[in-house]
Amino acid sequence: MKLSILDQAPISSNQSPREALQESLKLAQAGENLGYTRYWIAEHHDLPGLACSAPEVMLGYIGSNTKKIRIGSGAVLLPHYKPYKVAEVYNMLATLFPNRIDVGIGRAPGGSAEATNALSDNFLQQVWNMPNSVQDLLYFLDNDIPTEHHHARVSASPIPLIPPIPWLLGTSKKSAILAAEKGLAYAFGQFMSDQDGGAIIKQYKDHFKPRKHNESPQVIVTVTAICAETSEKADEIALSSLVWGLQRKRGEETHGVPDIQDAKDYLRNEKDGLLDDMKKGMIIGNPQEVKKAFLTLQDQYNADEIMIVTITHSPLDKIQSYRLIAEEILK
């Protein structure tokens, strides 16, 4: 089983944004040393508690301070941008860091309606035009633009020796079908979806059309997981993430991911069943429990790779979670 990392660059209550981004680099370096296949960083806009609005900037920083782990966006929110510019950015990264760059593509706004309007015009129209934008991006990444195309004389320079690998990210049948039709690898965001992921991935594989010779469908399933030496400690560490998610869901003002004691204080008057409902979409436990859950997911989704999102208050707890999982599964 391959394992990878999806980093949302969360800011803990005792951190500045700069410190949170420095911890993202440390996480990528730890992932590389532990044998993780890839490290992706997410794109968010004007969302309190999340530090990364420009993955391409962080990827230059992280690429310069790592050696072999694949790095990429999780995801470039394509409706905000022209495909040509995205291709230029990721071709340049692939030129600097050969055979290491992934371009994860998504269609979500990544922030509030106000932030979306500040970023781009006609966002909903661009979402509707997503299939055409994806195709244009592929033309530029492949450096193979049809002569009849209106950008036929344009190249997304610099042209790397090994192009970035495009992935489509999604949580629905619509994204799965688009990935299949375009011959793209597909990353299913199970941690953000309440839909039948197994059926969605089956539809992707059943409809897959190779973009190049000898290509086959590839699937990543992305899950939220927190691992510690004992189940009890994992449950305690997870309280920070659970409370932070609950606060954001309720629209309450937050000061980043709370520490464990503040999370316990917040939950003092909550109903017991509330956390149980929130935990259903997460994997929390000791290394053996997490491995068992991952193997079940791999079988359920017929996945090639599990990508892990882990949010904790303490950066040390986060890296320890990834370390314990790697030592249990990748040993």
Rank of each mutant, 00 (worst) to 15 (best):
M58V: 07
G285N: 00
T310S: 14
N302R: 09
V257P: 12
A185C: 08
G189A: 15
L27F: 14
L3T: 09
N122Q: 13
Q203T: 15
K249F: 09
A176T: 02
D46S: 13
E19T: 13
A326Y: 13
Y36E: 05
D136S: 08
I319M: 15
S172H: 06
V257C: 09
D194A: 14
Q288Y: 04
A152S: 13
R323D: 01
V290H: 04
S240I: 05
P163K: 14
G60M: 03
S155T: 14
D299S: 14
H149I: 14
E232V: 11
L119C: 12
L59G: 02
T310Q: 05
G197Y: 07
Q22R: 11
N214Y: 11
G281C: 06
K26G: 00
A234I: 04
K292F: 01
A75T: 07
Y139E: 06
D299G: 07
E23I: 00
A115E: 10
Y301K: 02
F191L: 11
M282F: 11
K67F: 12
P164L: 02
L246R: 12
A118Q: 13
T224F: 13
H149T: 11
Q195E: 15
N129W: 01
N132E: 14
A113V: 03
A9Y: 13
G35Q: 03
R250E: 15
Q135H: 03
K68R: 15
R70Y: 11
M1K: 06
A20P: 08
G170Y: 10
D272N: 02
E215D: 10
F140V: 06
Q15M: 13
A115N: 12
R100Y: 08
D46Q: 14
L297K: 11
K249P: 00
E148A: 11
V134Y: 08
N143Q: 07
T171W: 05
A108M: 08
T37Y: 15
K174V: 05
L119T: 12
S241V: 02
G285I: 03
I308R: 07
D144V: 00
Y204V: 00
K318S: 03
L295W: 02
E327R: 12
E215F: 08
H255N: 04
E32G: 07
I308A: 03
A152M: 05
N269W: 13
K2E: 15
I159P: 01
A42G: 10
K85W: 08
I329V: 14
L141Y: 07
A326I: 08
V57K: 00
M130P: 00
G273M: 05
